[in-house]
Design a protein around this nucleic acid. Sequence first.
RNA 1: GGCGGGGUAGCUCAGUUGGUGAGAGCACAGGAUUCAUAACCCUGAGGUCGCGGGUUCAAAUCCCGCCCCCGCUACCA
Length: 561
Amino acid sequence: MTRHLVTSALPYANGSIHLGHVAGAYLPADLYVRGLRQMGEEVLFVCGADEHGVAITIGAEQAEQSYDEYVAHWREGIKRTFDSLGIEFDTWSGTSICPDHEEMTQEFFRQLDDQGYLIRREIEQLYCAKDEMYLADRYVEGTCYSCGAENARGDECPACGTWIETLRLKEPRCKLCGEAPERRSTSHWFLDLPSLRDAKVADWIKSREWKSNVSAFIKGLLKDAPERAITRDMTWGVPVPADRSAGTSGKVLYVWFDAPIGYISFTKEWARKQGREEDWKLWWQNEDTHLVHFIGKDNIPFHCLVFPSMLWGTGQDYIMPHAVPANEFYQLAGGKFSTSDGHTFDLEAYLADTDAEVVRCYVTSTLPETADAEFNANDLVTFNNAQLASNLGNLGSRVLKFIAKNFDGRIPELDPAHTGDLEGLLFECCADCEDPGVDIKAFRFRRALEDVLALATAANVFMQRCEPWKTNKTDAALAGSQLNILCEWLSLLAAWLAPFAPHKAQELWLQLGGEGQVKDAGWPKVPGPDNPDWRTGLGGRQLGELGTLFPRMDALVPAEN
RNA sequence: GGCGGGGUAGCUCAGUUGGUGAGAGCACAGGAUUCAUAACCCUGAGGUCGCGGGUUCAAAUCCCGCCCCCGCUACCA
């Protein structure tokens, strides 16, 4: 049986997570995982923090914390946000704390080296004699060789926007001490992407089907696949294996090299905690596993070209990604989410007084699946009121309250004499409805939620045509049959809703008098002539305590900016 | 500069490999209804599919040019 190994891009442990991240790589993955599980599939959902790299060291130094403290702070903060959004990984770790990570990463280095895909080369870099370190571009300032501005950074000139080649910067200064750095020759290892591409990866890429927004991107990548440096001169990271360092010291593997390996080392850590350490190979080196990477579009090069190259280049029979459903960017109304520009909002505070499951559903309804999309707090209110409250929530409310008042809170029986007519009408109402599960499996989450809402609409139409409030006055048995059908339908809706709003779905399930967890109830097929055995036999069941599933929200005061 | 994406009803967006008079939700207008969270149901109004060429029997959908918006640019992943 197919196993599904699902990963979400490892969030970088130098800041909090915002809705752009959530919409890009985490919520879709969570929907996918929940959906597949409910459909009976075996799934493992792996994530953790990416904790190495120069941005971390700079951030920690500014915060006057140790690197360990700094990454722990963000690792935990990010996890809290995921928790409050109901994004549930099977394992959550971090590249600097996972006990398997260093060894696994070094093994990759050795294996790639053994296969001949690593190249060692001398390059020149700026070195600060006073601070005794090589300077990453972020540690250098100088005069822009393009416009003459004196405050150019090592990577970009803020005055003219030119992308700076650090070595060409005029009058470079060390950002830490202000002294002029010197050029020094240092040796580094490069990943031989051109060879990997020609040996295997290009053919593999061409043999796969990709989302349209991904395929355009990787086409260009194939043409231009340079050798990439995979080591750096610094201390924070996974050290180059001592047996391969060729006499050099003070070098670590560059963060982009070690980060994706985290998917594997986290899996191994998880497997050991399960008491089956070797099971990690079942997930990573077995053809029956489908590896799916959820990422934002900024990560396409790594997950479609670089990481697959690494996996294959080890010669260890790692599986290649089965799908990379990359999303475009999710922006805050008016522009991209940017903590540094202040164009963001406090997600934790927002979730304190906005129902996280409403946020999940709204974000799902606006996911940047094919193009950039944006979050708008006012639209969220509208969506909640028009779709969740008026359509789905109100459906439950009108059906269940009617039963509470007129049938003592007990779901009426379906009279066999009515079955044919009622199902005929019902199937007519949902004739155009599609199975949300099909769209979930195809990574079309927006449409999947639309499917669910359309199924709620179908039930509203059915009820409107049945008019049980009228039939109940003349033929209570008929009204009972109609309401029975509606309750059956509501229980299906609870199941379909579960991946999107797990708690709401469970609440509806309990209101219907259900037992256990709705997520364990399986995935219903859409009722129809070809699926006549859709009812589960709810007649006679006592309803649970009723409540408002999706309360209406007050419209926000128009934002100032 | 290079690369990628986008410009479709007032708003947010769908529109598979070109083909029945271009769609949904919101908002708007009219009607119907009263079980329900001023909800539900029916009907209607609405668009030169960024601009200009071209290919084709036929293009929002392919090609060329142009104009805007956005993202990325690989030692801030």
